[in-house]
Design a protein around this nucleic acid. Structure first.
Lengths: 138, 138
DNA sequence: TCTTGCCTCTACAGTTGCTGTAGACTGTAG
DNA sequence: CTACAGTCTACAGCAACTGTAGAGGCAAGA
């Protein structure tokens, strides 16, 4: 199967058809060959490339970073310091978001356990949202 | 003190001027009074309301949920089951993102420790991104 | 062969939650 | 009086897609 339509590529990689065309439009994927009737035809290299992109996106790398990584891949003689840097930057970003989310989880949990039914008038969730400076435990 | 311009409100709540106007445009904030020359004038209630919105946004509540919460606040006689529901939904969402991020952190860490300098040609980060099927993920 | 029904094409609008810009007016301190 | 910061409206742009319309393509069944 050295040549497949966009639908097959989509099935092979788990990336939606529209998203594949979008990636092409932002030059993340290069323009594929076309059939006589104008349909896109992809080879195995496209599966590789798109799988790479998808994995990186799943890891939260922004498209700009992926573009950088691809350009590094194209030139394999260079040191991989830059690759390392990009990955570390991404790890930092992930950790930052983790810390933030953990705080949110704690506060939401506290808010919910404090809300034991009753009327909106004295709902602790709304109270907590209103008064950020303290935690109204009452 | 009971009347302030948009800049003061911004300073008082930490929400940017443009964002305040945006909230007004999507009917999250009601239209304020205006001075003779057309400048927005806010009272203390606006500080409260905007503080509430800001805190909820910080907690990751989508605007739609905040709109719901506000409409509940306006009608304090109702049961707070719905408030509770919204908060629980949000907690679920936060936990889902937490789990995902933890997996990402683990994989990035693994990728980075495996990368010990050298050339791009054998960089383990790029390899890890390329060979997605071998990555213990999700 | 015709028809059915999914696949693909292009082009463009919509999504979420803002941010930035242009060009004009207003309010205030020195 | 003159700077200069603040405010006004209206619209464009950002990320990273998703969805839509309307047209044409392709393989299999009746």
């Amino acid at each position: 199967m050295s040549s497949m339509t966009i639908g097959k590529l989509s099935a092979a990689t788990g990336v939606k058809v529209t998203t594949i065309r979008y990636y092409e439009s932002i030059d993340l994927l290069e323009e594929p060959a076309r059939s006589a009737s104008g349909q896109r035809l992809y080879g195995d290299a496209a599966v590789e490339r798109l799988g790479f992109i998808r994995h990186a996106r799943d890891l939260g790398f922004p498209v700009a970073a992926i573009r950088e990584l691809i350009s590094l891949q194209v030139d394999p003689g260079r040191d991989c310091d830059l690759v390392d840097q990009i990955a570390r930057r991404q790890l930092g970003e992930v950790r930052r978001r983790l810390t933030q989310l953990e705080a949110l989880e704690a506060e939401l949990k506290r808010m919910i356990t404090a809300c034991e039914g009753g009327k909106v008038a004295n709902c602790s969730v709304l109270a907590a949202l209103g008064h950020h400076e303290q935690c109204p435990r009452e």
